[in-house]
């Protein structure tokens, strides 16, 4: 047995650099690693973030993997203890991080192909990492189609960035809200209704889909219907997570650990896993 004076549970320090409100409940945080080293994450991976004395929680890294920078971004919705206190952090405050952990979107498989991004609600946060990577290396990828669905206009996040993308040539953006209000002029209805609206070539398109559990139930079927095989569909599954190391058991999906084999799964890996979708 290898015994080392080392703890996988020991967080490393990071400093809050930028904080920006994205919606009433969601805030974008940019942290810098105190180590002076980049995070070295891959798109779709997550970290465990600690606010000492309060707790620790998993968050997807939302920024693209960049070797030249020690900074990384998270977008966090205020919903409980850790996420609540995070919203009170001030620039310059210290937090602890562990990771990056988990599986990721295999960038190489997306090269030279079209990508259909399907982002439901906060699902845009992890997808943004892959999207930004593709934009940074735009020539290496085919068409980028981005479908965004939000419950209502008030909950929309990254509004300015989406507007910028929509007005540019790099990404084809289609957005919808489930329940509109008087400010909303765009498409209405659940995100599934956007899928038949895009013309795609199923033989050279990969799908990267992240959203709430209910979204998967409908969107996966819709993707298969337009001819995309399940081994070209990638989803990210959220589960309760405590350790991120495959030990605490909370993230189990049948025999799988969402923190090790996931959160990103190729759909054919989990099609027959009863508890997955």
């Amino acid at each position: 047995m290898k015994i080392k004076e080392f703890s996988a549970y020991l967080p490393r320090p990071a400093t809050l650099k930028v904080k920006k409100e994205l919606s009433e409940l969601v805030t974008l945080f940019e942290f810098e690693n105190d180590s002076g080293r980049p995070l070295m994450h891959k798109p779709g991976q997550f970290i465990m973030l600690s606010v000492y004395g309060v707790g620790e929680a998993p968050f997807s890294v939302s920024s693209a993997p960049i070797r030249e920078s020690n900074n990384f971004e998270l977008a966090v919705r205020k919903i409980g203890a850790v996420t609540g206190i995070m919203h009170d952090l001030k620039v310059g405050d210290k937090v602890g991080i562990r990771g990056p952990y988990g599986s990721f979107f295999p960038i190489q498989k997306f090269v030279g192909q079209d990508t259909l991004f399907i982002a439901g609600g906060l699902g845009y946060i992890p997808l943004r990492s892959l999207l930004h990577y593709q934009l940074k290396h735009r020539d290496e990828f085919g068409r980028i189609i981005l479908l965004v669905g939000t419950r209502n206009p008030k909950e929309r996040i990254f509004i300015d960035q989406l507007a910028e993308l929509a007005s540019g040539k790099d990404v084809e953006v289609l957005e919808t809200v489930d329940v509109p209000d008087e400010t909303w002029k765009g498409h209405c209805g659940v995100i599934t209704t956007l899928i038949p609206k895009v013309r795609i070539d199923p033989d050279k398109t990969n799908v990267a889909m992240v959203g709430p559990p209910i979204m998967y139930k409908f969107c996966l079927g819709e993707c298969l219907k337009i001819g995309i095989p399940s081994n070209r569909i990638y989803v990210s599954l959220e589960r309760k997570m405590k350790c991120g190391l495959g030990k605490c058991g909370h993230c189990q999906i049948n025999h799988l650990n969402a923190c090790i084999e996931g959160p990103v799964f190729q759909y054919n890996q989990i099609e027959s896993v009863e508890e997955a979708i």
Binding site: K4, E5, A8
Partner: peptide
């Protein structure tokens, strides 16, 4: 338990006690 705790990221807390 040894097997589970040694797999992947070894659980040093467990392994210390076990040893």
């Amino acid at each position: 338990l040894d097997q589970i705790m040694e797999t992947g990221a070894p659980d040093q807390y467990y392994l210390h006690r076990r040893d």
